[in-house]
């Protein structure tokens, strides 16, 4: 388990860096798929197999296919690539380093609460992972579920309006 964690975190961080630094958008899209697979591995290690499957289906499947399709439609290789100027690079690296130091400081010196819930690994395994998630989704979080469906409907209309010839 411990070794797998380090393997997955190496793959995730390496491919995330590649996404940001690669020149060709298609290469970064493929590295992003790799990063999503590593994150799905993390979810399996954390005993959430349902989320791992959703991660691969929704992110690595649906969203990335959409991105690759748009890259194909826009014919990116014909567009001349734009160079990032130096001061923008320096500012970006500085801000994200400060953010990283802040996050690590907060994690290292913060206190964590005692476990309060009842859903330990053995309980979840006994009921079944998908069943636990589904029961919560259709009882306690029913209203949010319905609102999410309305949001998806609005997104369909929005995407149609933006992709139309004239608006």
């Amino acid at each position: 388990m411990e070794a797998l964690f380090y393997v997955f975190s190496f793959i995730a961080i390496f491919s995330a860096l590649m996404v940001v630094t690669m020149r060709n958008p298609l290469t970064s899209a493929l590295y992003l798929v790799l990063c999503f697979f590593a994150l799905a591995g993390f979810y399996v290690l954390l005993d959430m197999q349902f989320l791992a499957v959703m991660q691969i289906l929704v992110y690595a499947g649906a969203i990335m296919v959409l991105v690759v399709l748009v890259i194909m439609l826009l014919n990116i290789s014909k567009i001349k690539s734009v160079k990032t100027d130096l001061h923008q690079k320096i500012i970006g690296i500085a801000i994200s380093l400060v953010l990283l130091v802040e996050i690590i400081f907060y994690i290292a010196y913060g206190t964590t609460k005692k476990p309060t819930g009842i859903f330990t690994h053995s309980v979840i395994d006994k009921i079944g992972n998908t069943r636990v998630v589904g029961e919560f989704l259709f009882t306690k979080y029913m209203l949010s579920f319905e609102i999410a469906s309305i949001l998806l409907f609005v997104a369909i209309i929005g995407a149609y309006l933006f992709a139309k010839k004239k608006f």
């Binding site: 959430m48 349902f50 989320l51 959703m54 991660q55 929704v58 992110y59 649906a62 969203i63 959409l66 991105v67 748009v70 439609l73 826009l74 609460k113 476990p115 309060t116 819930g117 009842i118 859903f119 330990t120 979840i124 636990v132 998630v133 919560f136 989704l137 979080y141 949010s144 999410a148 949001l151 998806l152 609005v154 997104a155 369909i156 929005g158 995407a159 149609y160 309006l161 933006f162 992709a163 608006f167």
Partner: peptide, 30 residues
């Protein structure tokens, strides 16, 4: 924390991300 709410929230984040992807790529094409 032995809770399940975080995992449910991740599902909703995925829903929002999918909707956002559709609209954002529409904006990029426009």
């Amino acid at each position: 924390l032995n809770l399940i709410s975080g995992d449910i929230f991740v599902i909703f984040v995925m829903v929002v991300a999918a909707a956002e992807a559709a609209v954002a790529l529409g904006i990029i094409v426009a």
